[in-house]
Amino acid sequence: MATLKLEIVTPDAKVYSEDVDMVTLPGVEGEMGIFPMHVPLLTQLAAGEVAVRKGGQESFLAVGDGFVEITGESVSILTDMAIKAENIDEAKAEEARKRAEARLAEHLDDEEVAAVNASLAHSLAQLKVKRRSSK
C-alpha cells in the first residue's frame, strides 16, 4: 500500500519525518484527512491537532500556525510549534493558557494581541492533544 512521507519542521528542529498511512490536520477551513495520492495542495495550517495513522496505530501532535504542502507522496508541514503528545506537559500548558488569557484581559496593542493569541492557540492545541491521548 502506498504511504505518505510526513515531515513536520519548525524553525528549531525537524520534529517528525516518517512514512505514514494517513494524516489528519487542521486547515484554516476545517479538518482535512490526507491519504496517499491526494491532489497537490498548498494550504494554511491553523493551530490544533495533527493525527497520524501508521500501521493501524494513531499518534497525535500539537501544532501551531503554519503552512502545509501536500503532494501525492508527501505532506510537508511548516509550523512554528510542533510537540508530540507524549512530550506535552499538561500542567505547563494549562499554566501557559491561564497566563495568556490573563494577558489578553490587559490593554495591549495589536502586535501584542497577535502574539498572545498565538501562544494561547499553542497551549490550547497542546491541551487538546494531551487530554485526548490520556483518555
Binding site: E29, L41, E69, T71
Partner: peptide, 10 residues
C-alpha cells in the same frame, strides 16, 4: 520542482 499543479486553499 516536482512539476505538479498545486491547488490552493482558501
Amino acid at each position: 520542482t516536482s512539476g505538479l499543479e498545486f491547488q490552493f486553499e482558501p
